[in-house]
Simulated scan of single mutants.
Amino acid sequence: MNKETYLGVDVAPLTYKQVIKEITQRIDQNEQSTVIAVNPEKIMKSQSDETLRGLINGSTFQIPDGVGVLLASKLKGGQIHSRVTGVEMMGYLLHLAEQKSLRVFFYGAKEEVVTKAIENIQHDYPNIIVAGYENGYEQDNNKIITHIQESEADMLFVALGSPKQELWIRDHKDQLPVKVFQGVGGSFDVYAGNVERAPEFFRNNGLEWLYRLIKEPKRFKRQLALPKFLFTILKSK
């Protein structure tokens, strides 16, 4: 696929449905796929972190999660016309797993969070096959690997925070039978009902960042990555 590049970071100009179509084709061809959400904060951090930049660019699908990436594409005359958020991408993948009877494994977060998330997911996707789970506090990495191997999982969601989750996927994917990997950050908290998503108005108008800032003013420092990113893009333009 043709990818757009912003400050040395690749982004795939695909919609949810296009990503799912390509992942489905790759599953049929017995190929592994990795999905990583890209936002201005990650792109700016990657300017001084070559490992992070390599993790992003080495993934199969770099989805444009963040209104800043959408705006940058518009400024550059690119083809990214809508956001593809990590949490909603997870929902599309869960739907795919249910449709194709794929076995799903969940790794990360606190015990009570991951188990509640699975409970709610099974309610929303009654035919989904949960292959197993491990919480994010299990210290025995060999045990985790063995558990996933024995589960014969086709799809793996890793919620360890970025870039730890992407590093874990990169380091272990060749040992696993999994065909689809996604690092999902705090998405287990969303599915568990512990974190409320922004109202539809904010999401549809690219203002989710503003809603989060209103709810959590301490995020202000992190949100500065957005204007810094756009200013840098404008300078490079």
Rank of each mutant, 00 (worst) to 15 (best):
D65V: 07
I43A: 12
I27A: 06
G58H: 04
L52A: 10
M44P: 12
I80S: 07
V19E: 05
L14T: 14
E41R: 15
V69N: 09
Q47H: 05
I23M: 06
I20Q: 03
S82A: 11
S59L: 02
T85E: 04
S59M: 01
G78K: 04
I43T: 09
T60C: 04
M89T: 13
N57S: 05
I56K: 09
K17C: 07
K42F: 15
T60N: 01
T51A: 09
L71P: 05
S33I: 04
T51P: 01
Q32G: 00
I43F: 09
V35A: 01
G78M: 02
D49M: 07
I23E: 07
V87Q: 04
A12R: 03
S82Y: 02
M44D: 12
R53L: 07
V84Q: 05
Q18H: 03
K42C: 10
I80L: 02
V87T: 10
Q25W: 02
Q62F: 01
A72F: 07
T51R: 11
G54A: 06
K21G: 12
D10S: 11
R53T: 09
I20S: 04
A37C: 03
T51H: 07
A37S: 14
G77P: 13
N57M: 02
Q25D: 08
M89E: 09
S33Y: 00
A12L: 08
I20G: 06
S59R: 04
D49W: 03
V87M: 06
L52M: 14
I56Q: 07
L55Q: 11
S33C: 11
K76S: 14
P13V: 00
R26D: 15
D10W: 08
P13E: 12
N30R: 10
K42N: 11
G58F: 02
Q47S: 08
Q29V: 01
D49P: 06
V84S: 14
G58S: 03
M89S: 07
F61G: 01
H81N: 15
S73N: 05
Q18F: 11
P64I: 03
V67C: 02
M44S: 12
Q18G: 08
P13F: 13
Y16C: 12
D65K: 00
K76Q: 14
R83V: 04
Q62T: 05
G77A: 14
I63G: 00
V19M: 15
L52F: 11
P40I: 02
M89I: 08
I63A: 12
S46P: 10
F61T: 01
K76L: 08
K45I: 11
